[in-house]
């Protein structure tokens, strides 16, 4: 067989969801990639020796963004079909992977990890403050509808277009969407900060809230000067508790 069946492609895609199961410092996602492409190789190479050679070449180093890797997996199956038909050298699939993994990792990190996911994290957090847990469920459902649709689309585009998948990914304009999502994230974080203060004012009164705000401003200065997030959080918790204890002992403290 020199074409991979739809069922085997589906299994390969589903297995790609475990791409990083055995992430390691030497080959990074190599085991995951070999695991994902195995159903396609099983169909393409009934000859055991060719099957072993194909498996061995996919144990080589591989590292990409786990969502974007779907495009490379689809493209690698496309090239393996051509290798099986004798139209390409067995080295081509690995060259294809090596060429695309860096650029697609950069696009995936920039869009999914530093824009889309933080955006939905902030939406879910603010939604939870305003509407409770159903907002969390809704935000995560929408995030996954988008992320899984893009993963499936990129896998199909890679399989159908091979080297031309770059054009299909470029047409998605992910970097320009990322910038808008990042600013949206910052805005939702700002609204969440205000909601915390308003809730605090209702529960604790204006003086306590002013103290909390002063501590938070000091914490922001520390954050901007490069202190670690957890260290600043600890500092804010401990210093504010101490300041609160002192304030309560002052005349007029309640």
């Amino acid at each position: 067989m020199t074409r991979v069946s739809s069922a085997a492609r589906t299994r390969a895609f589903l297995r790609s969801l475990l791409l990083q199961a055995a992430w390691n410092r030497r080959g990074m996602q190599n085991l995951g990639f070999e695991y994902a492409i195995a159903p396609a190789l099983d169909e393409l190479y009934p000859d055991p020796e060719r099957r072993r050679d194909a498996a061995a070449r996919h144990l080589g180093f591989f590292n990409c963004h786990p969502y974007m890797a779907a495009a490379i997996l689809g493209g690698a199956i496309h090239h393996e079909e051509r290798v099986a038909r004798g139209e390409e050298s067995p080295a081509t699939p690995q060259r294809y992977k090596q060429t695309l993994q860096g650029p697609l990792a950069a696009i995936g990190d920039g869009f999914f990890w530093t824009a889309l996911r933080p955006f939905f994290g902030a939406v879910a957090a603010l939604g939870a403050l305003l509407f409770g847990w159903p907002a969390v469920l809704l935000a995560i459902t929408i995030y996954n509808a988008i992320h899984l649709a893009l993963r499936v689309h990129m896998f199909r585009a890679g399989y159908r277009q091979g080297d031309a998948v770059i054009g299909a990914i470029a047409a998605m304009s992910l970097p320009s969407a990322a910038e808008r999502l990042r600013l949206g994230t910052a805005a939702f974080c700002g609204v969440a900060a205000a909601a915390f203060l308003v809730d605090g004012a209702q529960a604790l009164g204006p003086i306590a809230t002013a103290l909390a705000l002063a501590a938070a401003i000091a914490g922001q200065i520390a954050l901007r000067s490069g202190a670690s997030v957890l260290a600043v959080a600890y500092g804010v918790l401990l210093v504010t508790t101490g300041a609160g204890l002192v304030a309560l002992r002052l005349p007029g403290g309640s």
């Binding site: 900060a193 915390f196 203060l197 809730d199 605090g200 604790l204 306590a208 809230t209 103290l211 909390a212 705000l213 501590a215 938070a216 914490g219 922001q220 954050l223 600043v232 959080a233 804010v236 918790l237 401990l238 504010t240 508790t241 300041a243 609160g244």
Partner: peptide, 9 residues
């Protein structure tokens, strides 16, 4: 009070 400050930060 510290919790509110922590949430804002």
């Amino acid at each position: 009070i510290a919790w509110v400050a922590f949430a804002v930060i």
